[in-house]
Design a protein around this nucleic acid. Structure first.
Ligand SMILES: [Mn+2]
Ligand SMILES: [Mn+2]
Ligand SMILES: [Mn+2]
Ligand SMILES: [Mn+2]
Lengths: 218, 218
DNA sequence: AAATTTATTTAGATTAAACTAAAAAAATCG
DNA sequence: CGATTTTTTTAGTTTAATCTAAATAAATTT
């Protein structure tokens, strides 16, 4: 049985190895977990001894099959709980992450099985991220950052890259949400900001940074 | 913010001080928490420094107002989660305690508020124990152990004294549940066992021990 | 290819929560 | 009451997870 800390390390290593490169550096882990590189070295030695990761001194770590299984279970739990909070307890999508960070460590296979059933086997969480099934399988929707759309092209918001509260609250404010239709009205060369139309009714200007964190299906 | 361990100590001290005497002994705490008296001494010094309990060396501890507030919040969370598991996730009443022991430590006032609302403000958990409200208030139903009923007297099961799985599974087996009607058909002098009728249809013999752990309202 | 910078590991400490063994206080009993 | 037993505390360790400072390896830059 793994500790909360161990589970969090595995989740981080898994995420970094899929979003960045397969081999994850000590510093990258330290940065995501807001901890010091020396602490990371201690923990990766432990996880390596438990067979959860592959570790070569000074050369970073990669996740093992066993470690990936654990990481995907934690991710599954995190996202199922987020769905529960939004769908059943009326949380807003910007309020769920921190609570899910706690709930994801509850150990009870029956609980997760029943929760999944209760939620009617959701495939995506409130931020558009896919929920792995019991076997760790999940489908990634084809999606591109809004910043990559051509002028006058349109699409549907399917996910966000950043689940930070401030970003999500900003999206609420401009009327953007998962499922909203977006059309690119103008691309401002000067700062790469965009003028977009949301749901055929509202026109707003958004910064390059925002457009890179909104994911669209065309 | 208190750790899981601190919360568990406070819950235990609170329970012991209401079921047993107001002043709780080091040994009693150690026994309930399956830990050693020396560990308890360390922890009660810490909780005392935090103002959660009143401690006089060699004379046991009593819970402070602040400590009681914390303990009641933990109890409230534990019991609300048990209701959730049984009512929403179809857990049996003997399957919920261990999971609730984990869930009771999740820190999110909003979560508990919304959960309470979602469950429609339940007053009792699946074992008949009262759920404290946001202010720590709760009502205790008048209840007596089944062992105290007179011959031919009858009543309704309102709670159980022991939430141990094996006991609850035994109750399921004989058809006893919260709300069931019980009539005492015979009191066996030899071993203080009882012959009872459940819901006017089933007759069973139960031991003294069982009859002491079933709580009845007359 | 050497010098410098950056990344990583090691060494040594700290804190929380447990433990064992021994000492000390309180309670009980002859 | 004084001796014995029980309870509680103290002293000293252990393990997990963190930290700082120093040492070492790897990468980068002259
Ligand atoms: Mn999240
Ligand atoms: Mn999410
Ligand atoms: Mn319980
Ligand atoms: Mn209960």
């Amino acid at each position: 049985m793994l500790s909360f800390a161990e589970e969090n390390y595995l989740k981080t290593i898994y995420h970094l190895s899929t979003t960045d490169k397969e081999d994850v550096s000590t510093n990258a882990i330290a940065e995501t977990l807001h901890t010091k590189p020396a602490s990371v070295t201690d923990m990766i030695r432990k996880l390596s001894n438990k067979g959860m990761i592959n570790y070569r001194k000074y050369h970073g770590v990669s996740i093992s099959d066993e470690g990936k299984k654990v990481a995907l279970t934690v991710v599954r739990k995190h996202r199922l709980w987020e769905v529960f909070l939004v769908d059943k307890l009326k949380f807003n999508w910007d309020e769920v992450h921190d609570v899910a960070e706690q709930l994801e460590h509850i150990k009870s296979p029956l609980l997760i099985k029943r929760l999944d059933e209760f939620l009617n086997y959701p495939k995506y969480d409130p931020h558009g991220d896919p929920i792995p099934d019991e076997n760790g399988e999940f489908q990634i929707k084809p999606k591109v950052p809004l910043s990559a759309l051509d002028l006058n092209a349109s699409g549907i918001i399917v996910a966000v890259n950043d689940s930070n509260s401030l970003f999500l609250q900003y999206l609420d404010k401009i009327g953007a949400y998962l499922g909203a239709k977006i059309k690119v009205l103008d691309k401002i060369e000067f700062d790469n900001s965009l003028e977009i139309m949301i749901d055929n009714k509202r026109t707003v200007f958004i910064s390059k940074e925002v457009s890179e964190n909104i994911l669209i299906t065309e």
